[in-house]
């Protein structure tokens, strides 16, 4: 069972729908105490970094997530969720992040200040092709990004900016794009990354997307 972290920011409905579509059980977790029986945690998020990080601290999720990660258990962050897993962000001032992934979140500084729409992801470090479709198009919506990280798995180019579209350190993976809104290809990625992070077969259920 996948636990989708509910901390008062972000639309968790479409993440749940995505897992339902690929036949993987998922539920909303309102309290960090509910995490223990989960096989994987998913941190969604839309909006600004600072208030979201505050909410994670207030709800006890910040400590719970770090503890989860220390135990080597798998977690996926999506969009702002990925950014929150990083070390820090400069969105509306300096904010410390959860620090599970290496990298600082900074403004895109592109002509269009929002990167919105479908863009390709390229596997930047060999080894990730087994569960990430190299060259696939995914749906992005963000104004901030991580340009440099030791944990970069895929990169994406927007105007003259190249940034990390997937970060991975151990069992912690962050996607800057929205696999749950990226059509069948995105759903397949969710299925393959869930399998990748759950080597003990059957924990998350079988997942097949046509």
């Amino acid at each position: 069972m996948i636990g989708v972290i509910e901390y008062g920011t972000g639309n968790t409905g479409n993440v749940l729908r995505a897992f339902t579509r690929i036949g993987i059980g998922a539920k909303i977790l309102a309290s960090p105490e509910d995490r223990h029986t989960m096989s994987l945690l998913l941190l969604p998020g839309v909006g600004a970094f600072g208030p979201a990080m505050d909410r994670l601290r207030e709800t006890g999720w910040a400590d719970a997530i770090r503890n989860w990660n220390d135990l080597g258990r798998p977690i996926i962050g999506i969009c702002l969720g990925m950014q929150l897993l990083c070390e820090s962000s400069e969105e509306n001032g300096y904010h410390k992040g959860l620090g599970l992934l290496h990298g600082r979140v900074e403004a895109l500084q592109t002509h269009k200040r929002l990167h919105m729409g479908w863009n390709g992801i390229r596997v930047a470090v060999p080894g990730h092709e087994s569960y990430i479709p190299d060259g696939a198009f995914m749906y992005f919506v963000h104004g901030y990004c991580v340009t440099s990280s030791l944990d970069t798995a895929t990169i994406t180019r927007f105007e003259d900016k190249t940034f990390a579209s997937t970060l991975r350190r151990g069992n912690c993976i962050g996607f800057q794009f929205h696999p749950e809104r990226s059509g069948p290809v995105g759903l397949r990625l969710l299925a393959s990354v869930t399998a990748e992070l759950s080597p003990s077969k059957g924990v998350c259920g079988e997942s097949v997307v046509a």
Partner: peptide, 8 residues
């Protein structure tokens, strides 16, 4: 490269 979107 960011693709151009077609929106019905």
């Amino acid at each position: 490269m960011l693709t151009r979107r077609i929106i019905p």
